[in-house]
Design a protein around this nucleic acid. Structure first.
Length: 398
RNA sequence: GCUGGAAUCGUCUAGUGGCAAUGACAAGAGACUGUAAAUCUCUCGGCUUCGGCCUUCGUAGGUUCGAGUCCUACUUCCAGCA
């Protein structure tokens, strides 16, 4: 079982430490979105320097290229990407939702590769196998999202997610048993996996794709809190290491939804809020209501598109008004971009389409969200969360 | 000097009698939440009570119901020949 220590609690909010085979994650924490085993425009060294604790890659993308077997051959995601820290993989479930021409059956989802049109099918079992091959520390169950006003549609997707979860858990345990590092005990003649061994010092050197790996169930249910509650109860009843909360598309109603879900989920297991983090307020709401980790593509995507975070809200650095602005992007920021460059320079780099524009902007935006979540953690530990939240949000959204 | 060719919105460009005029870039703005995203959308002659009105395709004339498009002259540029 994944080890998670809770250091401090305040209502649903908590600060803790997730102990993964590749190191600790002090929570709440923002996990960098490294879909194709890279955080776009950034090197892993830059990610470490800006304080990122973990990354999340996507099974669907890595399956298409370079292939999960190749990553296994390389020694796993951490070794392959030179990240060497805690890693997550998303299951590919989101792609069922986001790609066109996806056929969903009870067995799984049939995709067409967006690269060359190759057809292939992903099932709960194949997703688990792919994630084991990729070798991230924490895996997401293969789920089905829905975005519908229709409760029946949402309910159907949720129930399918639950049936798939059963298959994910079974396959995950089968793979756990196969793993040579796992201790196997016999209970009533049937093999079950015991707690993965996690003795010895943290492994930060070359990793092993066969090291302990952990599974999160994914809670669905859309905007219907009774469905969310049902999904949380179902997920909580399963033998998993933690939980992803998925299918959150609007911040409206998120506090109530998270209160519903996180009041049901067992306190001692970590919770990951999937895909939320474009708006800083989402991070506050998430942490406040019991989420431990977050991931979101928006900070780096927006960075590449010139939309940059400041304590006074997001600005578009490409706007003409920054042409002669020789002040730092965000004076209070300690990132490489803000410490060394000014807005006029960033404006120039964007207007002339220099690669460095995207690099510096991504360093800053990623640092910004990492830093906000780190400060949320500190404030939970210091009992100053409410003050920090008010101070930050009043200024950011004024 | 002669002979051809060419001049269109910041730039390049489409346009061969019905045109405020094509496309690209540039410019201005917006979007982006488990990444088919270094992407996408909108604006881009002026005014507008949103029905239109006015001014535009080197300059000046002309033909025509109608000219960026045809004719004449001029100006500038390009190529070739002297």
């Amino acid at each position: 079982m994944l080890k998670f220590d809770i250091e401090k609690k305040s209502g649903l909010a908590r600060a803790g430490i997730i102990h993964t085979p590749h190191g600790d994650i002090k929570t709440p924490a923002f996990v960098g979105a490294a879909t194709r085993a890279t955080v776009k425009a950034l090197t892993m060294k830059e990610m470490r320097e800006l304080g990122s604790q973990a990354i999340l890659a996507n099974t669907y993308h890595l399956l298409l290229a370079p292939g999960t077997d190749l990553i296994k051959e390389a020694g796993g995601l951490a070794e392959f990407s030179s990240w060497h820290g805690p890693t997550f993989t998303d299951s590919g479930g989101f792609q069922i939702f986001s790609l066109p021409d996806v056929k969903i059956t009870e067995n799984g989802a049939k995709f067409k590769s967006h690269i060359n049109g190759d057809k292939f099918e992903m099932t709960p079992e194949s997703s688990m196998q792919a994630q084991w091959a990729i070798g991230a520390d924490i895996h997401m169950a293969f789920d089905q999202l829905a975005k519908s006003e229709n409760k029946k549609d949402m309910e159907d997707a949720m129930h399918r997610t639950h049936r798939w979860l059963d298959r994910c858990v079974e396959e995950h345990h089968r793979l756990l048993l196969k793993n040579k590092r796992c201790e196997v005990i016999r209970d009533n003649g049937s093999e079950i996996a015991s707690e993965a061994r996690n003795d010895g010092p943290e492994r930060s050197g070359p990793s092993n794709a066969c090291s302990e790996q952990y599974l999160y169930a994914v809670v669905q249910g859309g905007t219907f809190n009774d469905l969310r509650a049902e999904s949380a109860r179902y997920s909580a009843s399963k033998d998993v290491d933690g939980f992803g909360i998925g299918g959150v598309f609007v911040a409206d109603g998120m506090p109530e939804m998270l209160q519903t879900v996180n009041s049901i989920l067992p306190e001692e297991k970590p919770r990951h809020l999937l895909g939320m983090g474009q708006e800083p307020i989402d991070l506050f709401i998430g942490a406040e209501n019991g989420c431990d980790t977050f991931d979101c593509v928006a900070p780096t995507r927006m960075a590449r598109n010139g939309s940059l975070y400041t304590l006074d809200g997001r600005i578009n650095i490409k706007n003409a008004k920054y042409k002669n602005d020789f002040t730092p992007l965000m004076p209070e920021c300690d990132c490489e971009c803000c410490k060394n460059y000014n807005r006029a320079y960033l404006h120039h780099l964007f207007k002339t389409d220099e690669i460095t524009a995207k690099v510096l902007a991504s360093i800053h935006n990623e640092r910004f969200v990492v830093s906000v979540v780190n400060k949320i953690r500190e404030s939970i530990l210091n009992n100053t969360f409410e003050e920090y939240k008010k101070e930050f949000l009043d200024r950011y959204y004024k």
